[in-house]
Amino acid sequence: MATDLKSQLSDLPGATELIQQRDGWWMSAPNLDVIETARFMLGLEGRLSTITAAALPGDETEVIYHYYFDHQVLNFKVTTQKNTLPSIGSILPAADWIEREIQDLYKVRFTGHPHPERLILPAQLEPGLFREPGGKQKR
């Protein structure tokens, strides 16, 4: 990654150190300003690939924003506050459905979402269906 891009990413509000892994660059920044990050990536013609949610112990959720720019993968890992994050749907239409799906499956509230209706979860199921832990607890 170019040094100036790395430095610009490090200057985003709430940013921490970028670490290179086998599958791309990762930043674990619980308080990263996701709106400013989305605006910055859009300015670069970067693409939002997807957003991954994973339930944390308690009621919070770890949310990973996966971007793609110039043959590089950038992953920003943030944590919800009271299971809430600001929506980036009005900046990047790509986030519209992704945020609504996370709202359905992990009960994360995205404030400022242009139309936060249910997307994928059938009406008879309660939101937060995917908060159940996987891994060794499932053995």
Partner: peptide, 19 residues
């Protein structure tokens, strides 16, 4: 297609995300 897998070292994935 994107897959994200998180592992806790057991034989069952902690998280599987499919985009």
């Amino acid at each position: 297609v994107i897959y994200y897998i998180a592992s806790d070292g057991s034989d069952i994935p902690l998280r599987v995300k499919i985009r």
